[in-house]
Design a protein around this nucleic acid. Sequence first.
DNA 1: CATATTACAGATATTTAATATCTGTAGTTG
DNA 2: CAACTACAGATATTAAATATCTGTAATATG
Lengths: 161, 161
Amino acid sequence: MQLRNHVEWALHCAAVLAALPEGHYLAARHLAELHGVPREYLAKALQALSQAGLVETTLGPTGGYRLARAPHAITFLDIVEAVEGKASSFECTEIRKNNPCRAKNTRPIKPCSIAAVMWKADKAWRDSLRETRLSDLIGMVQNEVDPETLKKTIIWISERI
Amino acid sequence: MQLRNHVEWALHCAAVLAALPEGHYLAARHLAELHGVPREYLAKALQALSQAGLVETTLGPTGGYRLARAPHAITFLDIVEAVEGKASSFECTEIRKNNPCRAKNTRPIKPCSIAAVMWKADKAWRDSLRETRLSDLIGMVQNEVDPETLKKTIIWISERI
DNA sequence: CATATTACAGATATTTAATATCTGTAGTTG
DNA sequence: CAACTACAGATATTAAATATCTGTAATATG
């Protein structure tokens, strides 16, 4: 069970957008170059964020993406669900109804307790993702990169917005 | 992000094995028929349980599978990890190192805080799965199926062990 | 107004993983 | 010995992830 790389890309892009000066847009082209990922494919992930209402876009030169809400109002879960979907990681296919001992016209089966356990775990995963907001990230990310690179990156971005 | 159907099958099979009378084996063929899934493919999931040491097997007629430990000593996580692996649902590909502003010989990057959040959520998922044991299931499953089917199923199994 | 640039939807191709089956081998029971 | 089992490994099929391409409409700038 692996999350798509879109999730990783979208999270890193969102972290960058969260640090962007107020009102400016950053284009998909620059986000792709900054992270070293294919531009056209990253665009799909960004469009998913757009459809979920997490980012705003504008066209033309100086166009691109910016957050639609304040960083503290966007959680990891928002982003993960935008690109990966809201469906549970466990799908119950009701194999109980394949039991050869079960009469066809038996009354509807009660909820599957195995599925319930799996769904509870899925909920725990989502609850955990909901606990962290983009605003929590800003300090962390700036602290984990070396100062020289951080300085250059800020300049690099400022030249493209 | 979807778990493989092997997970669902393995959990239902384990629930059946947990209810088996002491010392008896149930063959993959019967587990497949009971759940209405392809025998050869289910066998792969059962073999994964065997390799993880969760079930014991024996060959020949009357051969098959039984739990290697008491139901209270086997958790959902044991079974999920046996068939799905222990790798985290989030893989960090370190796209930070693709930053064009970063000098090649920069000292090793500190742990990625985005990955840390994702791994924490993965841990929350696993912690939740570890909370439920096969022994917890026995009562639940017997309560969710109608009495007539349950009775017939117990007989059906008893004729095959 | 003209040009360059953008997001975006949709189609298409490629690669990888999931699903499924088949074959042969070795051990077990009666 | 005959029938049955688990199991490893090879192979085939199907679906999903990954990646690219094309055309369209909107926007800023000169």
